[in-house]
Design a protein around this nucleic acid. Structure first.
Length: 426
DNA sequence: CGGCGTTAG
DNA sequence: TATTCTAACGCCG
């Protein structure tokens, strides 16, 4: 059988790069992008990586920010999502077998392509993406998805590759020399715990993992660990997934911008989370049969009374009708809400998800198909209006008008691609 | 099948 | 003052 051929195209410091696309004044300055509520660092430009760790709380790095004149941004997901879509559209012109693995990475399968010089091909892709989106990318070519990850890891650490590495043109021995430079925690699928375990057993690099006993690895790192070993050896076990299956669980949760101490505000917040989860459900043409909500106080804070509770509701039939979901969430809240606490986080989780097309009318239950169609049409219209005129143009009154508990985003850049009012001025 | 642990981005 | 959010998968009982 012919060897497989994969490519991974991975945007460099994606969120930070996005901020630079429309704002020339920060192209030469270090950048960080913060998580919800402006709390933690979730992206850094290359120049500042040695001084700021991923996930670091912003209050810990005030000194660094001042010293290096770091430009700080709240996360601007609508901007990142549109640039991501453009990035993927550009890639789709190169290869039909495309797996959009995350917001900033796509795998391509090129097994049936005949390309003489993959490195040159990679540079063509890289230049095209940069030209059409302004985003710099790194590209790896290899016989397995795990090895393309390794390739990208290597080129990101070594500028002499100029962003592209074709592992397939290297001999086994040359590949091994490169694998020996990749630390064990940089291998795809090896997280914090497994890395510590492997290091305790003398496995510190990707090369050592490649030549480890796969049965021993399977015993301690499960079958996913064994797959990694085989993939490092060039045996493809992780196929490309062109069609993303619909999500099996949909969560909408957030820490509040400030603590919530009244049931009315909590109702407002949960109604919003339920509405958002329902939108995501309809985006993938699904229905849910189960809703779980949770509320909790801040367990990081010592010396305050703590409370954490959840409540699960099973519906008699699957639904994606926002009023049904909001009503259930509020009913659940009534069961678990206790006064006298400062709540800091809540969420709504939808599970037992089925495709809308599989909806079976229950002949004996309290169920009207006509009514269901009316509901579906109503939500279709609400979604369409919100899509065209902007998020939350139309919403339910219980979701509230002030939403004083909403997350802080004090350093948001312009939503250049989704809000006419914030389009770039030149 | 639910709960737990691990990982990813 | 301050510690993200969302999703999947394997194993176990």
């Amino acid at each position: 059988m012919k060897n497989k051929l994969f490519s991974l195209v991975d945007a460099n410091n994606f969120y930070a790069s996005c901020e630079r696309v429309f704002n020339a004044s920060v192209r030469t300055k270090p950048i960080v992008v913060l998580s919800n509520n402006d709390s933690c660092v979730v992206a850094r430009s290359n120049d500042i990586k040695p001084y700021i760790k991923m996930g670091q709380p912003v209050f810990e790095i005030e000194d660094v920010i001042r010293e290096y004149d770091v430009q700080v941004f709240s996360s601007n997901y609508s901007l990142y999502a549109t640039l991501s879509a453009r990035f993927k559209a550009v890639l789709s012109e190169f290869c039909p077998l495309q797996e959009n693995y995350s917001i900033d990475e796509s795998f391509l399968e090129l097994s049936h392509f005949f390309i003489d010089d993959l490195t040159e091909y990679g540079h063509t892709i890289k230049a095209r993406v940069l030209q059409y989106t302004g985003i710099p990318v790194s590209i790896g070519f290899a016989a397995t998805k795990c090895l393309t990850k390794i390739g990208v890891e290597i080129v990101k650490h070594d500028p002499s590759f100029h962003g592209v590495l074709d592992l397939t043109r290297l001999s086994e021995q040359e590949q091994d020399e490169l694998l020996a430079t990749v630390t064990i925690e940089d291998v795809w699928g090896i997280g914090y715990k497994y890395a510590r375990f492997l290091r305790n057993h003398g496995i510190d690099t990707a090369k050592q993992l490649k030549y480890a006993d796969e049965r021993w690895i399977r015993k301690y790192l499960t079958v996913t660990g064994e797959r990694i070993v085989l993939e490092l050896r060039g045996i493809s076990c992780i196929p490309i997934e062109v069609e993303r299956p619909p999500k099996q669980g949909i969560m909408s949760s957030k820490t509040f911008g400030r603590e919530i101490t009244s049931q009315e505000e909590m109702e407002e917040a949960l109604a919003n989370y339920a509405a958002r989860a329902a939108e995501k459900l309809r985006e993938q043409d699904s229905l849910a049969s189960c809703l779980t909500l949770f509320i909790r106080t801040n367990s990081f804070k010592t010396g305050i009374p703590q409370y954490s509770q959840s409540y699960t509701i099973n519906f008699p039939y699957p639904t994606a009708f926002t009023p049904d979901l909001i009503r259930s969430a509020l009913y659940g809240l009534k069961q678990i809400y206790r006064g006298g606490y400062s709540y800091y986080k809540a969420g709504v989780y939808l599970t037992k998800i089925t495709p809308q097309s599989a909806l079976q009318p229950d002949l004996f239950g309290d169920f009207s198909l006509t009514e269901r169609y009316k509901q579906a049409r109503l939500m279709l219209i609400v979604d369409a209006i919100n899509h065209i005129y902007g998020h939350d143009t139309l919403f339910f009154a219980i979701q509230g008008f002030t939403r004083a508990w909403k997350m802080r985003q004090s350093r948001l850049s312009g939503r250049f691609t989704t809000q006419w009012s914030e389009i770039l001025n030149i």
